[in-house]
Design a protein around this nucleic acid. Structure first.
Length: 177
DNA sequence: CCCTGATTCGC
DNA sequence: GCGAATCAGG
């Protein structure tokens, strides 16, 4: 992927808005967060002095000119796909809230969604709920994005929605908690 | 483990 | 110039 002017500008915009490198990479598409960070540096954009991750400025140059690449860290070899910021830790809360609501006034439309992180398609990972929200044709369409357990495509809430008959759904919803 | 940005350096 | 690999930290 080339750094076209548009892409560079979007990068600048998103970076200045404080989005993380991985999120920016996800939105731009076709680049890794490293690419984004690298580009940010080359553009001499202001770094994150103390925001977000960390920064201890000066680092000891461990790398010597012709040092062979020694992969010391086997622990780093993990499946790392598109990254996203910290998952939905508030999921439990939201479930409770939503359950209560559903009990109080059961709306005719059984299309009640707990909460969503309004994730775009590109921001989904293995463990984010892929329950679609909204009309795919409209541009407010997004995905739930809550944390989904093990290798399930949905979060605990939407898992029930997905695999339970409509009639049983209320039971399922009440069983939550 | 998840994540963050920073840096180096082969390409 | 680009960005993967690595490092350093929360």
């Amino acid at each position: 992927m080339n750094w076209t002017d548009e892409r560079v500008e979007k990068l600048k915009k998103l970076w200045s808005e404080g989005l993380s490198a991985s999120q920016i990479a996800a939105q731009l598409g076709g680049v890794s967060r490293n690419a984004v960070i690298g580009k940010v540096h080359r553009l001499s954009l202001p770094g994150r002095a103390k925001a977000g991750g960390s920064t201890t400025t000066v680092r000891t140059p461990k790398r010597t000119t012709s040092a062979p690449r020694a992969p010391n860290y086997a622990s780093r070899i993990t499946t790392r796909t598109v990254t996203r910021q910290q998952g939905a830790t508030m999921l439990k809360e939201e479930i409770e809230i939503d359950t209560v609501e559903e009990v109080r006034f059961r709306p005719a439309a059984n299309v009640v969604v707990p909460i969503s992180r309004r994730l775009g398609l590109t921001e989904l990972t293995e463990r984010t709920c892929k329950w679609p929200v909204g009309d795919p044709l409209k541009d407010d369409f997004h995905f739930c994005g809550c944390e989904s357990p093990d290798s399930s495509p949905y979060c605990t809430y939407h898992q029930r929605m997905a695999y339970q008959p409509v009639n049983e759904r209320r039971k399922a919803a009440n069983r939550v908690a």
